[in-house]
Nucleic acid binder design. Structure first.
Lengths: 181, 181
DNA sequence: GCTTGCTATGCAACTCGTTGCATAGCAAGA
DNA sequence: TCTTGCTATGCAACGAGTTGCATAGCAAGC
């Protein structure tokens, strides 16, 4: 498990509330780690108990109060130690691949429906790629002037872009294959 | 959830025991869906209760007996219905990306260790790519003569190959970035 | 005879993640 | 005033997935 560690990285990049973390996990961090607000609040509570983060009440006007969290020295030590551990092999779960192999066991109508679904899926990822490219233009307009943290964020974003491009190419291959059956 | 569906596809491609399924999930199916034997046995039992599969005792010589499972008509209907449902958005969890962004918060020693770990990770995936390419040569030597099921299996394998190639390129980008910090 | 190793199946306990629901502050517009 | 919608936090129940362990057949080698 590493939701704790993803939260530590995000809070080190910028302190924030559980709600703000949830929004970040929907956006930039969601490129490589997903989590819902319920999970985040639960884990934050445990992290506070363990002394990895400290929460501070922040009054806001025009909005409800929030609790902003900051990483403690102990939390940072925990992250540094985790960074040294070997990367665990990923658990791949690609539902679309299962469906594609499953297409061998349905009829023409079923295959036509799957083809339409793949097209929809492709359109979603084309949109996502555009979002990434716009984000890159906005956040990293001049790659020469970035500090270490920004360069690392940029290389992770480039990974997301490379993934989406690869995926779109492969989906075209899938569509050709389904059409030619 | 879709472990049930991955099992249905695998058993439709070829009936087999829980143990055999577990081995397939380590190999070819593991490219796009992972599961341990405990999970598989538990789910198989539920699927048998629900009438999606039927088990049959098979005596073997030189080995313990096994229970070989076959998909029923009802199981096949279940799969076909699932194929029609929209693909759920994937839950991305890329631990390495978290660590790379985390590298901004450790020292030179920590970054050097991470770099070594990325190199090790890259070597693993280079091996995996080779395995895929060998499997492709072995299982799909003549793409013109394949039936529908084999073509679908092949396009899924091509997805795995495309993913590994993309990953290796990106890891080179990551290594350059880490070295230049 | 003993150990090692692969085939084969399974239980129990635990952790992680999802889903549905609940509460509440505040702003903006019908 | 009432509804809609966003910010903000949280509980409870359930389902999925992991980890550790246990059992047993059979083959091969020391």
């Amino acid at each position: 498990m590493a939701l704790e560690h993803a939260i530590l990285v995000s809070l080190l990049e910028r302190p924030g509330s559980g709600y703000e973390l949830a929004r970040r996990f929907e956006r930039s961090i969601g490129r490589f780690w997903t989590a819902t607000h319920q999970q985040i609040y639960r884990v934050l509570k445990r992290m506070e108990t363990d002394g990895w983060v400290t929460g501070e009440e922040v009054g806001q006007d025009g909005r409800p109060d929030k609790r902003s969290f900051t990483v403690t020295g102990s939390g940072r030590d925990t992250l540094v130690e985790w960074l040294r551990a070997p990367v665990a092999p990923e658990a791949v779960r690609h539902e679309l691949a299962v469906k594609i192999r499953g297409a061998a066991f349905t009829d023409d109508t079923g295959r036509a429906e799957l083809l339409a679904e793949v097209e929809r899926y492709r359109a979603d990822h084309e949109t996502l790629l555009t979002t990434y490219l716009n984000g890159e233009k906005r956040d990293f307009p001049d790659p020469m002037t970035l500090d270490a943290g920004q360069r690392l964020q940029h290389v992770v974003l480039r990974g997301g872009i490379a993934y989406e491009r690869m995926l779109l190419d492969w989906l075209d291959d899938v569509l050709d294959t389904l059409r030619a059956l």
